[in-house]
Amino acid sequence: MIQRRLIPSYIVLVIVSIFSVFPIYWMLTAATNNTADVARGKMFFGAEAMINFNKLLKGTNLWQSMGNSFKYALAQTVLCLLVCSLAGYGFELYHDKGKDLLFGILLLGMMIPGVATMIPLFRMMSSMKMLNTVWGFVLPAVSTPFMIMMFRQNSRNFPVDIMEAARIDGLSELGIFFRMFMPVMKATYAAAAVITFMNAWNSYLWPRVVMTDNKAQTMPILIANMANGYSVDYGMLMMGVLFSTFPTLIIFFVLQKQFAEGITGSVK
């Protein structure tokens, strides 16, 4: 039974929960209403979802942007996991003084704001003809101090005996990584994948800089552009927001534990 002394806690938590969920609930209802109803303050589901969807299909290149977002986010996730887990593995399990020093230097990279590197990176990508390409999108985000640290911290639990045994069995150093380390570290990979995919899918500043062509645009850019007109169709806009949101919403509900682990990363 609910304990009496906890009733104030429940009241606070219920209020905060409603505050947290309401904007998302409202976005879902607005996607099913026409813009007049949305403006009038209708808070319940309507019957205009298909109309809003068709308007969205006609007015924007929805599928192209969805495809782009998926392509870039998947590429970033695969490359980031591979590069950063290799590095985390190297830093932790082969560590010596030199590597520890290098690791400390790399951590300084966490202090570098994206807005400070965006101009040089734009010029770099532009001179390498990588604007509007998947490489232009992912390369600056593949290797991050945060991810390296996450893999490094988590590989502390990796049993070193396994490595010795594998060496005796004749496995190469890289073989140990692929055959032993990766399977054992599944949970860390899952958490890292969730967080990297979400970050890539949701990123906005860098894609806006590097994806100058409409054909290369991502979902966040698509919906941001929709809201820029003089008269905004709120039903259609919220349908766009819904498309931009549902992949991450699904990931959140299915993999909430991994998501939380990915966020807190190396805090143990």
């Binding site: 938590l13 905060v16 929960s17 947290s20 969920v21 904007p23 998302i24 409202w26 976005m27 607005a30 949305v38 979400m198 899918w201 949701n202 906005y204 966040p220 919906i223 941001a224 809201a227 905004v232 709120y234 806009l237 919220m238 927001v241 931009s244 949101t245 991450t248 919403l249 990931i251 959140f252 909430q256 998501f259 939380a260 966020i263």
Partner: peptide
Amino acid sequence: TCVFLPCSISLVSYSLIFKSL
């Protein structure tokens, strides 16, 4: 889950939701 839910929404999406609200 409820309190954590806003983290699943991109900054652009929630900005547009708040702009509409």
